[in-house]
Amino acid sequence: MTMTNILLCGVGGQGTLLASNILAETAMLAGFDVKKSEVHGMAQRGGSVVSHVRFGSVVHSPLIRKGECDLLLSFEELETLRWSVFLRPNGLVLMNAQRIMPMTVSGGEGIYPDTISERLTKLPARVHAVDALGKARELGNSKCVNVVLLGLMAKQLPVLPRTIWEEVLESRIPAKLLELNKKAFEAGWGLA
């Protein structure tokens, strides 16, 4: 039984929820059983957010175990560090090289580690950091950073055909933003 375990992490407000929704629906349409889990509510107010997405022939628990995450799609550097404990050996990290200071750092209670990329390269994992936010800005809207990252991830998941990704994007994204998001997906695909 092959199972793919993907963790999406970031900061509340970055669009991780939409990204995980699109991933889950794509997995279903590609013929897999799929489960997704995240917590709404208080954590979304600028807090640390994480979505678990699992797909395979049969999925029971919606939660990924520590050490079983195949792919960590991270929207923010510090969050990559926080959730990297879920990675399996030789797991893949796709990271948006963006930093958002938590209030604890601004308040002087903590230090934002300044060498996150270096530290990640020491892990027994494959790490790929990209400037997805920069790409999104180039396209004229920083909000489509989540779809840039989806494109980046999609290229690493050959079991999910690109045509299905595009079908789901079309059904999920409002018409007036579709063209922009298609470009964002393409841009992310090209970053890999």
Binding site: A43, G67, L81, S84, P89, G91, T104, I111, R119
Partner: peptide, 21 residues
């Protein structure tokens, strides 16, 4: 056995509690 975990990164990760927007 427990799944093999990748060694935790050796640096304190500051908390990110929810905040007023």
């Amino acid at each position: 056995a427990f799944p093999t975990r990748v060694a935790a990164v050796d640096v304190p990760v500051p908390l990110r509690p929810p905040v007023l927007c």
